[in-house]
Amino acid sequence: MSAILEFQKVSKSYRVAKRRVPALCDIDLGVEAGEVFGIVGRSGAGKSTLLRLINRLERPDDGRILVDGHDVSQLDDTALRALRQKIGMIFQHFNLLSSRTVAQNIAFPLRISGELGDDEIRERVAALIDRVGLKEHARKYPAQLSGGQKQRVGIARALSTRPRLLLCDEATSALDPRTTQSMLHLLNEINEELKLTIVLITHEMNVIRSLCDRVAVLDEGRVVETGAVADVFLHPRHSVSRRFVHESEDVDEDLLNTAFDRVDGRLFRLTARGDTTYEPLLSGVARECGVDFCIVSGHVARIKNVPYSQIVLGMKGERVETALERFSSKGVTVEALR
């Protein structure tokens, strides 16, 4: 694996009413070729700026942004355009040309680059329309399409130049939950089929959970946590990350603490990943060690394609420590909360 994209000590500020307002501070990030990298943050956290630095829609004040080892800030106009032609981008509001049909929109980047002839363009566009499932809509104008269909056009358009990197700017934020799911599914397929690196920004942790391999949590212009999605999700270290995870799981932290207070005995958080998730461990260990437990909170779901369960147990009994050792030996992560 090699880094296709690197941020080195990148800072950026804006002038607002003659004052400098920092947007990004000291960003260090690396994105590996072929992975789906998510950047999550609230609005105003600087995600949009971060994404736009990659294809130099914005310029950094400081630091370097390397795409395939080339410093983006050093490129002249011609080289910059060549780079942009190899970086696809999709947008929250789709940004399709309303005066062009679906097919013409998808062909647009190819017409701009001028590298292909008419026949080749027609062939490639037809294949892409087919790929995103819009065969019957090729001659329609964007205004005649639903939001999900428009984003499919956006994705096909972004893929038309066969980029190595796809930037997604809140690509599902304007879509309803069901359409969001189908869009995430499509992006996941594309990532696997084409080995296409995807960098996406979002404020929805669920997008990160179902699509990304790694995630960076952005807060007030700083990266507060990065890591594999499963690690950040199941064991968030920073309070901002924890809040994102709780929100996505509909957990109210205060209510949870009240619940903990009402439990007699000790409290443990158990996390199982992969196949362990489906093993009948709880009752078995309880029987063997003679402990009693209650489940205070719990969550069973998937991160990308890996199932996991995470539960908080209140435990009582003589041999609690033995029970915990037994859980650990089965591959369950145990954290003592109290």
Binding site: N55, L57, L80, R81, A82, L83, R84, Q85, I87, M89, F91, H93, N95, L96, L97, S98, S99, R100, F108, P109, R111, I112, S113, T161, L167
Partner: peptide
């Protein structure tokens, strides 16, 4: 403005942005 940004992101020249995106739109 998003349409201009999208066209820029495709690597269009200013001339292309004007003649192929701005004026038709």
């Amino acid at each position: 403005r998003g349409i201009i940004e999208a066209t820029q992101a495709m690597g269009a020249t200013t001339w292309q942005i004007v003649t192929r995106a701005l004026i038709p739109e």
